[in-house]
């Protein structure tokens, strides 16, 4: 009897632990990825804003880095990761997966165009590609993110 109780306790504890790890995983991962996207977008944004000097090579490198981070991003929102870890993901991600996926796809398409265009020749060209890529941030954050602070 005692043995059985112990076994049950151990099994349920390990299930609980693995569930909580499974939940902390995607939330932490997607947060880190999102930060990385923001950091790289900022490299270009600061040129556009006039805070740093135009550098076409660095800008293209930043677009490429965003592309590398962004690939597979959608997989970091599995069922079960709706809450916890101070996530700012909106429940709409799971209630409207098709809409959410469409936003991610559009981001991928616009980013792909910017990467394909190669090193931007001047600030004017960079402003155009930045506008096209950056509009995707708020397009998704308007419906699928909830501010927590």
């Amino acid at each position: 009897m005692l043995k059985r109780t112990l076994t049950t306790a151990i099994v349920s504890t390990s299930v609980l632990i693995s569930v909580s790890i499974a939940q902390a995983g995607p939330i932490e991962d997607r947060k880190a990825k999102m930060k990385e996207v923001g950091k790289n977008l900022g490299i270009i944004g600061k040129m556009v804003k006039g805070e740093t000097a135009f550098d076409g090579v660095a800008a293209l490198a930043a677009y490429n880095a965003m592309g590398a981070v962004g690939t597979g991003f959608g997989e970091f929102f599995p069922v079960g990761s709706e809450t916890g870890g101070e996530t700012t993901a909106s429940p709409k991600i799971w209630s409207d997966p098709a809409g959410f996926e469409a936003k991610g796809k559009q981001f991928g398409v616009d980013l792909g165009v910017a990467i394909q265009a190669g090193t931007p020749s001047d600030l004017a060209a960079l402003k155009v590609s930045f506008g096209s890529v950056a509009k995707n941030c708020k397009a998704c954050h308007t419906d699928y993110r909830i501010k927590k602070e």
Binding site: G38, L41, G45, K49, A134, C137, K138, H141, I146, K147
Partner: peptide, 23 residues
Amino acid sequence: VYYLESGFTPDFDSVGGSMTSVQ
């Protein structure tokens, strides 16, 4: 001023939620 024009914070996080329309 830049945030209200572009929707980007100094860290290049973007506007979201109901603020998007306001911005």
